[in-house]
Amino acid sequence: MAKGIDEPLLRLEGVHTHIGPYHILHGVYCEVPNGELTMLLGRNGAGKTTMLRTIMGLWRASSGSIHFDGRDITALPSPDIARSGIAYVPEAMAIFSDLTVRENIVLAARNGPVHSSRLDWMFGLFPALKRFWNLPAGHLSGGQKQMLAIARAIAEPRRLLLVDEPTKGLAPVMIHSMIEAFRALKAAGETILLVEQNFHAASQLGDNVIVMDDGLIVHSGAMSDLVADKALQQRLLGLSLDSHQ
């Protein structure tokens, strides 16, 4: 069956996730449009990380369905989900500290050596990686580790990037670098679902926004609408963009 032009790349329908005795996602419905950057916002404990991990198959959806590129991936194991074209950058970055920067990238490129033009593009986004190419990744600073984690996700072309709080704990100058990198990724046509606590950063990047609370999607729409509507910001996030300037 041919996909419609406006069909989203990723669609979650009524997804519930339990972790042990805890019911975390309570029926999530949302869509991620192709070729756009969608921000996933919400307070701590809202279920953002659980949603990304459930999409990735690292935690299993107890009910509901997840469709990626028209295909049901709900029951697929994580490696198959990754192979279908989804890359995941966890909040803890999860770089391999004992491996060099080069080895981290080599491992992420499942289909053989990284093409030199892609490598140059990655070095353009994250120049530090070139300088520290042969050093153990554990020796990098927090910001550099985050860059490596994202570079690993784009070592090969992917259909969708899931990125969990990339600016968390970073110095302001690094946050600026990260925002610039995501702007470049967006300009390159990547589809990104980005969890972010920093609303100021989120408002600069997002085409669309999804807001979660208590394991449910409480708002979704264009980022520009949320930025323009202070009352809505206040109601959904308990803040206004002005306070983050």
Binding site: W121, G124, L125, F126, P127, A128, R131, F132, N134, L135, P136, H139, L140, S141, G143, Q144, M147, A171, V173, M174, H176, S177, M178, E180, A181, R183, A184, A187, A188
Partner: peptide
Amino acid sequence: MSNAAAEPIETSLPRARI
């Protein structure tokens, strides 16, 4: 595919320690 990110502030080269 532009050169988007500014050079990070950490300029000290960490040495690989054996």
